[in-house]
């Protein structure tokens, strides 16, 4: 078994997700199934293969340093769950 229920709980916590015991059990099984399948890749010798970050090799999609108009604030703030005085407002967080 590659993944235990502890791993599922840990990843769920990192992702701020809450699951029932039943769901955790199911995800453990599902993830093991997926990882076992992907394990096949370990049979390939990748000694001299460079890391690939995508299916296609694309380089240098770059932009010139030219200022563009920003968006209208009201329209942007409509995407936030709450806003006040031009700020996005969220439940209080303290470091």
């Amino acid at each position: 078994m590659l993944v235990t229920i502890r791993d599922v709980e840990y990843v769920a916590k990192l992702a701020r997700l809450e699951f029932t015991e039943e769901q955790k059990q199911r995800f453990t099984e599902d993830l093991n199934g997926i990882l076992n399948y992907v394990e096949m890749l370990n049979e390939v010798d990748t000694e001299n293969v460079e890391i690939s970050i995508g299916a296609y090799r694309v380089e240098n999609a770059l932009r010139e340093d030219v200022v563009k108009d920003s968006f209208n604030r009201d329209s942007l703030l409509k995407n936030a769950p709450d806003s006040q005085d031009g700020f996005v407002k969220v439940p209080k967080v303290i470091e």
């Binding site: 010139e64 340093d65 920003s70 942007l76 995407n79 031009g86 700020f87």
Partner: peptide, 26 residues
């Protein structure tokens, strides 16, 4: 600048926005 006036979907992190690297940064 007044709050949230130098912003767009990319720097507000809205879903579907596509970041494109500024050449001058490099």
């Amino acid at each position: 600048g007044e709050q949230n006036t130098h912003c767009c979907p990319v720097c507000m992190g809205l879903p579907g926005a596509l970041p494109v690297l500024n050449k001058e940064v490099v």
